[in-house]
Design a protein around this nucleic acid. Sequence first.
DNA 1: AGTAGTGTTATATTTATATAGAACACTATA
DNA 2: TATAGTGTTCTATATAAATATAACACTACT
Lengths: 120, 120
Amino acid sequence: MLRKVDKHSGIPVYLQIMNQIKSEILLGNLKAESQLPPVRELETIFDVNVNTILKALDKLKNEGFLVSEQGIGYFVAKNVSIDPQITQEIKKLVSNLKSKGLDLYTSLLLIEEVWKNEKL
Amino acid sequence: MLRKVDKHSGIPVYLQIMNQIKSEILLGNLKAESQLPPVRELETIFDVNVNTILKALDKLKNEGFLVSEQGIGYFVAKNVSIDPQITQEIKKLVSNLKSKGLDLYTSLLLIEEVWKNEKL
DNA sequence: AGTAGTGTTATATTTATATAGAACACTATA
DNA sequence: TATAGTGTTCTATATAAATATAACACTACT
């Protein structure tokens, strides 16, 4: 589920890592209490330096998504899964956008812009 | 339509500027051939330095969204408007997500993750 | 006590981002 | 030809992001 980051996207790497982990938690793919791979393994998975991993994990701790225990590991803190119905609607839109030939980046742009421009 | 950037979001400012302008073009709010505000005005609009403006505009030129003429100004290059039907579907999902209490950032995360995980 | 497997901290270095401030160059028009 | 309004380039500085490398600290288990 977790995958290498894109070092040339312009998006800071530690943010990409935060986003991946946060998403997995929100989508219910990483359950509360479950343990993350050790940081040195995450280094390999994401293909970045430990310090970058730690920066991401530290921020996720501050946001309450993770807890850590010295000598033991990192754990998912709370259960914050999203309503599966919402996931379903997102899937529909995504497959729709894909079938129209849009790429991910453009799609995200449009969604952000619509979000910020629509009242309510 | 164009608005100040968030200097503390972690997203590079020049990228935020690129994204705003690109979105306006894609949504048809900035028409082909139309002229952008002068760079020194954009400085004020986005509340950043000229050099940062120029970095964003330069990249948009390279992507073919803009052209510039010394002493005259920046112009929207091509007509790349998105199918309005797609915009409509995005609006529906957005208002749906908003009504469920999700915030923009979380929504974008989920969409990106679903996009990358779904085959097809 | 020792060791393997964890997280944590620290220092130095490199590269990317962003700002400030100034000067320069081109275009149109008075 | 002068000037206002544009874009463009340059240099210097500051901060943030990312890497490499090494050492340190805690936990569980033998």
